[in-house]
């Protein structure tokens, strides 16, 4: 464990807590893409298959349970909570996220480190996470006024993988044989997809104006 990865995990944890806070306290999921939440639930479900077979550390297991629990409960809230689901804008959240899963699965079947079920699913989760934010970014462009919590959620979610890039650089130089091209490339692509959001997010913060993404 290094400071970059710990900062990344804490940023990731903060993003899911911000979203849970928003949905649980103000009972609203306005501006939140259910599609992105479903993709993230699938990302964690396919990435943490080893939660029962490989024990790494208490921290690792606890964080996996938190990410699994929070992502599935957010999906449940938006789909089934009698008050929250009324604020879900399904006419705007129209990204065909199923079309994201298929190429990710195909790519995982061809480009992976080991051809085993767990490894292919793990690789699928990496590719899927790289594009999972797309429905949310599309929804933000359609949502005229983005509330602060949703903006903070997306910012933290993008920042966590950016911090992981520093973690991979650090581990590359400190641990022999730590080479994971697939993880690195997927992580860089994922972070780059947030580039324009980060730009407009900082602009709105600097000029102290409401965050708005150009359509």
């Amino acid at each position: 464990m290094n400071i970059f990865r710990l900062a990344g995990d804490m940023t990731h944890l903060a993003s899911v807590l911000v979203l849970l806070l928003k949905i649980h306290t103000i009972k609203s999921c306005a501006g939140v893409s259910l599609k992105t939440q479903e993709l993230y639930a699938l990302v964690f479900a396919t990435r943490y298959l080893d939660i029962v077979t490989d024990f790494i550390s208490v921290y690792n297991t606890v964080m996996k349970l938190i990410f699994l629990g929070s992502s599935f409960s957010i999906v449940w809230y938006i789909r089934h909570h009698r008050v929250v689901r009324r604020s879900y804008d399904k006419d705007q959240d129209t990204f065909r996220h199923y079309l994201l899963m298929i190429p990710c699965m195909l790519l995982a079947l061809f480009v992976h480190e080991k051809f085993t079920f767990k490894e292919v699913m793990w690789t699928f989760s990496l590719y899927l996470e790289a594009v999972a934010i797309l429905p949310q970014l599309v929804l933000l462009q359609r949502t005229r006024n983005i509330d602060n919590l949703t903006g903070q959620y997306v910012f933290l979610l993008g920042a966590y993988r950016g911090l992981y890039i520093f973690n991979w650089i650090y581990r590359y130089f400190t641990e022999p044989h730590f080479v994971h091209w697939i993880t690195w490339i997927a992580g860089v692509v994922q972070t780059l997809l947030y580039a324009d959001f980060f730009y407009y997010y900082f602009e709105s913060w600097k000029n102290n104006v409401r965050l708005q993404l150009p359509a």
């Binding site: 995990d9 990731h12 490989d54 790494i56 690792n60 480190e113 973690n167």
Partner: peptide, 10 residues
């Protein structure tokens, strides 16, 4: 380590 690489990151 001898064991095949475990994915020790989240």
């Amino acid at each position: 380590r001898g064991k095949n690489f475990q994915h020790d990151e989240l």
